[in-house]
Amino acid sequence: MNVFRLSGDVSHLLAILILLMKIWKTRSCAGISGKSQILFALVYTTRYLDLFTSFISPYNTAMKVFFIASSYATIYLIYLKFKATYDRNHDTFRMEFLVLPVLVLAFVVNHDFTPLEILWTFSIYLESVAILPQLFMVSKTGQAETITSHYLFALGMYRALYIVNWVYRYYFEGFYDLIAIIAGVVQTVLYCDFFYLYVTKVLKGKQLTLPA
């Protein structure tokens, strides 16, 4: 565990807490893509099945359990508790366009052809594109609430910090995992346009709006 990895985890944790707080405090999930949240729940469920097969550390177990539990709690808030505020007309990205190609890729490009390893690979690939329904929704409505922008920024920074962690681990530990690295770079690149808007608008006190 190095400082970049830890910062990445903290950023990820912060993103989830910002999202839950936003929905809970405003009693509304307006502007949030339920589809991205379903994809994230699928990501954590398929990745953390090793909770049943191996124990690494209390930290590792606690974080995995938190990510799984919070993803289902978010889905509950969007689709049940505050479903009247869910903006389904703007959440029109087709999940199967992401899940099916990613599933095929996980069967073809993986470290080991075993069920758990294929599911882990699937979750790494799926995570890299899981934010697309949310970004699609923002581009469709042309705007995002400031709190939603903070959520997206923290979520984007998490994988960006993991990349720095992988560079560090490559140099100091000789460890690298090409599947995680390539997927992590794809994931971070998808946020670049948003990062630009965040820095040029949100950090200057303006709401995030896209040119028409």
Binding site: S54, I56, N60, M63, L116, E117, Y162, N165, F175
Partner: peptide, 10 residues
Amino acid sequence: ELEPLDKDEL
């Protein structure tokens, strides 16, 4: 290196 099923990173 980590074993394939021993995933420390999240």
